[in-house]
Design a protein around this nucleic acid. Structure first.
Length: 884
DNA sequence: GTAGGGTTAG
């Protein structure tokens, strides 16, 4: 139409009408098609309208949108007349392309040219200020706005709210919001977004309530932000917001759909997410990415892969975000094969050097490949590695056992000018723990104090863990006390490290700390506490923890259920252990190992071995711990040939390389079975250097089978490796005694005394009425024992007043005469408040029917004594454990 | 021309 008109001669008011027509056509083209827009340009020139300001502004906007800001700028420079719309058009084009430096420079030249900015210009300038971190500049713009009377302008108010929020000045933004008042939908939504960005989720929701009460209608923008809040606050809120959207008839466009899919996915409602995404046929790359990542978050890996395939079939191109999501699926599945397939697609799509995809690739190779070099290759290919790239690689090196390289990489990162964040610091501190690198830990701790990172709870938790892992409990607690708030991870880390140190009672005390801090026990901390109770044999505490697990629903976690199996197994209550095992839907290797261990420890060797068969039938692969348990069971059951068979099958059938501990068990099995020469052959041919303990094992076997020549050889070899272990002398001396060679026995003991060796005191723990008591036995000459004697003597008078002493078997009598000692510390501390436990030598354990050198016994129904790894039960009356 | 969705590191 315009072309035809252009060939005629036009005069008078026809020109004005044509200008309007051109302008309208260009506006239409602007939002639809560049091609049509350009074709309109020719007739405009033919008509002689090329100097027309409005038409040129329309063309400028078109060029900016379709041909890029440089072409638009060129057109702008050629324009004979310019107004605020022309200047703002270019400025906005710069801002949209992220060219913020040019935007501010261009704004300067605008002011120099004498052109006054309007609200659109200033709004673009504010966006560049926040992008460049130019806070001062932004506040100058605000001052200018006030001077120019733009203070109440809704566009600028929204712009300012956004500006303050980007600098994390949410409070200032809110003050401004309150001060201005009378807001429209956009400024309400911007204020809500500000609270969302500051992670003040509840405040964002409350503001929505205020907005509705103020009578301002929320739109799809508002709901998208609110759905983001619900992803964090939970499904209850998500459903409410969704219902409000339906009531208000909000149009379900693709952006709203994506926000809904994301919300339902994060609330573990993937079915609802898919239902929503199928409500309309509109799909784009972002929506598909949300679906894939939703499946990944909910561990529905096959569906995630299917969604990725479907996306390609529908012709929707994956972008860097999509590749990151699907790579995350392969990382979670530990599937190198899938990861490599995706990697090749990434190369085809030309996204190999993209930092986001590169980061996901690094993680994939770290988790799925056993070669850290694969991850390093990806890292070196990233054009601009960011803090996530460095952190992933640093954590990767640490995870693969290269702690020193990990630290060097950290130094390289700092030299490259990339600032470590809390993720980096906590990863690197975590790696120090594995390598026990104290100097580096102290250096990093200093760095953390100097920066703001010490406020981050993950960093503080990592520091707590590393100090506790190094055995520096005081330093760990110091970090904990300095924390403004603690979480379940803080306490779980402490409890498990304290457990590792063997201070199980101290680990259980963490429960009180958590209670005082108002922190709920989670599945991880519960597993640690159950493990502490199991190792202490404190059945009462264990049962209380069991109760709590059931009431709180933690029992559904397999780690908690495994803890229960372990607890009851170690306390000798095999029926309860079996019941806890039976309640596990899909028992894992830890569940099975717990069951086998429990059965073996009460002497039910055949049941333990048949549990192993059940485990294999259930398709669970045994690990090296399983074989330690099986070998130990065979050892206790004197099943020599079966033990040998299991040992052989480790490598041949199960592809497990036997470790030193397995060889020790094998040697013990052969030794106890009297096959001493074979046992010696194993020691000489095994791929490990024999340690003192293996010779001790053989020496014990020699003693049992009265083989003096071999025993002497074993004692000699063992003492070469550990001359300070008195056990070699004691075992050998006892063997001489047993064989009637008392002279040699005495000579050996004399030798031991000359070397100033003495048997370390044995220790046992007993729980009586919710209190754990420590018992120690040994000779008076031992410093630890002597200290206890002195304590007893000082309170002797008090003890003697107790009624049990009148029965003639007082505490003092029992160990003064035998030169051995067993003391309840609880008794020492509060002698008059708790009953006295009288010491009896040579009591018989009801479980293993062995004689035990000392045991505490009297007033309580059941006492469980743990001696080394053995559990002994002494009961008065019937056992409280069902089925025994 | 002011406000909205998806990813990756502890």
């Amino acid at each position: 139409m315009l072309c035809k008109t252009g060939s005629r001669i036009i005069k008078g008011n026809e020109v004005t009408r044509l200008e309007e027509t051109c302008s309208r056509v260009l506006s239409f083209c602007n939002s639809n098609s560049l091609k049509e827009g350009i074709s309109v340009h020719c007739p405009i020139v033919k008509l002689g309208l090329q100097d027309h300001l409005y038409l040129n502004n329309n063309l400028l906007s078109l060029y900016g949108k379709c041909l890029g800001v440089d072409k638009a700028r060129h057109f702008f420079d050629e324009m004979p007349f310019k107004d605020v719309v022309s200047w703002s058009g270019i400025l906005s084009a710069y801002v949209k392309r992220g060219n913020h430096d040019c935007a501010l420079e261009f704004f300067d030249s605008m002011l120099i040219s004498g052109q006054r900015p309007n609200e659109f210009t200033l709004s673009s300038v504010l966006r560049s200020c926040s992008a460049l971190g130019e806070f001062q500049y932004g506040t100058c713009i605000q001052a200018y706005m006030i001077k120019q009377g733009f203070e109440q302008n809704p566009i600028l108010v929204s712009g300012l709210l956004d500006f303050y929020s980007k600098f994390n000045f949410t409070g200032e933004a809110y003050k401004l919001f309150i001060y201005v008042g009378n807001h429209d939908t956009v400024s309400w939504t911007t204020m809500i977004s500000s609270f969302v960005q500051a992670q003040r989720w509840s405040k964002a929701l409350l503001l929505y309530v205020d907005m509705v009460e103020a009578g301002v209608p929320p739109n799809e923008f508002t709901f998208v932000k609110l759905l983001g809040v619900c992803s964090v606050l939970g499904l209850k809120y998500g459903k409410l917001v969704h219902a409000h959207m339906l009531l208000r008839g909000v149009k379900l466009n693709v952006v709203v759909k994506t926000a809904l899919v994301d919300m339902y996915a994060r609330c573990q409602r993937m079915e609802d997410a898919i239902k929503v995404s199928n409500l309309t046929s509109e799909y784009d790359t972002l929506l598909c990415t949300a679906v894939i990542s939703g499946f990944a978050q909910n561990f529905m890996f096959r569906k995630a892969i299917a969604a990725f395939r479907e996306m390609r079939i529908s012709g929707i191109l994956p972008n860097n975000f999509t590749f990151s999501s699907i790579l995350n699926v392969s990382s979670l599945m530990l599937s190198l094969e899938l990861g490599e397939q995706i990697h090749s697609r990434v190369v085809v799509a030309g996204l190999e050097h993209d930092v986001n995809v590169g980061n996901a690739l690094i993680t994939m190779y770290v988790k799925c490949s056993d070669k850290i070099k694969d991850a390093l290759r990806v890292f070196r290919g990233i054009s601009l590695p960011n803090v996530i790239s460095w952190t992933s690689l640093i954590a990767g090196f640490a995870e693969h056992g290269f702690q020193q390289d990990s630290f060097h990489l950290f130094m390289e990162m700092r030299a490259a000018g990339v600032q470590p964040n809390s993720f980096t610091i906590s990863s690197i501190i975590g790696s120090f723990n594995a390598a026990k690198l104290l100097p580096q830990t102290l250096m990093l701790h200093g760095h953390v104090i100097k920066t703001n990172l010490y406020k981050d709870i993950a960093v503080q938790n990592a520091l707590t863990d590393v100090y506790a892992g190094l055995g520096m409990l005081d330093d760990a607690w110091q970090v904990v006390h300095m924390m403004s708030h603690r979480d379940a991870i803080t306490y779980t880390s402490l409890a498990s490290r304290i457990n590792q140190m063997g201070h199980h009672e101290l680990a259980l005390h963490i429960i009180t700390d958590m209670y005082n801090d108002d922190i709920k026990i989670d599945a991880f901390s519960m597993a640690s506490f159950l493990s502490a109770s199991a190792d202490l044999g404190t059945l009462v505490t264990g049962k209380q923890l069991h109760c709590h697990s059931m009431k709180s629903g933690l029992g559904r976690w397999v780690s908690v259920a495994n803890g229960l199996v372990d607890l009851y197994g170690k306390c000798g209550c095999i029926c309860d252990a079996q019941r806890a095992f039976g309640e596990i839907t899909v028992p894992d290797i830890f569940s099975w190992n717990g069951l086998i261990s429990g059965l073996a420890s009460i002497g039910s060797i055949s049941s333990a071995l048949s549990a192993f068969d059940d485990m294999r039938l259930a398709g669970v692969r045994p690990d090296s711990v399983t074989f330690l348990l099986l070998l130990s069971a065979c050892n206790n059951g004197k099943l020599v040939d079966l033990g040998l068979e299991y040992f052989q099958s480790m490598r041949e059938v199960h592809d497990i390389v036997p470790q030193l501990d397995h060889y020790v068990h094998l040697v013990d099995i052969l030794g106890r079975g009297g096959r001493l020469e074979e046992a010696m052959e194993v020691v000489q041919t095994m791929p490990f250097r024999a340690d003192a303990s293996i010779y001790k094992t053989l020496l014990r076997a020699c003693k049992a089978h009265r083989n003096i020549p071999l025993a002497e050889d074993m004692a000699r070899r063992g003492l070469e490796l550990d001359p300070s272990d008195p056990a070699f002398y004691i075992l050998l001396a006892n063997l001489y005694d047993d064989s009637g060679r008392h002279d040699f026995g005495e000579k050996t003991r004399k030798l031991m005394r000359e070397k100033q060796l003495r048997k370390n005191p044995s220790q046992s723990w007993v729980q009586i009425r919710n209190k754990v008591h420590l018992f120690v036995a040994g000779e008076r000459s031992h410093p630890q024992i002597n200290e206890i004697y002195e304590k007893i003597e000082s309170i002797d008078a008090e003890i003697k007043s107790h009624r049990y002493l009148y029965q003639g078997m007082g505490i003092g009598d029992s160990y003064y005469h035998s030169e051995k000692l067993a003391v309840a510390f609880g008794l020492l501390n509060t002698p008059s408040k708790i009953p006295i436990y009288i010491i009896k030598n040579n009591s018989i354990c009801r479980n293993c029917h062995n004689f035990i050198n000392f045991v505490t016994h009297l007033v309580d129904k059941e006492i469980i004594v743990r001696e080394g790894n053995r559990l002994h039960s002494f009961r008065k009356g019937e056992c409280s454990c069902r089925g025994c």
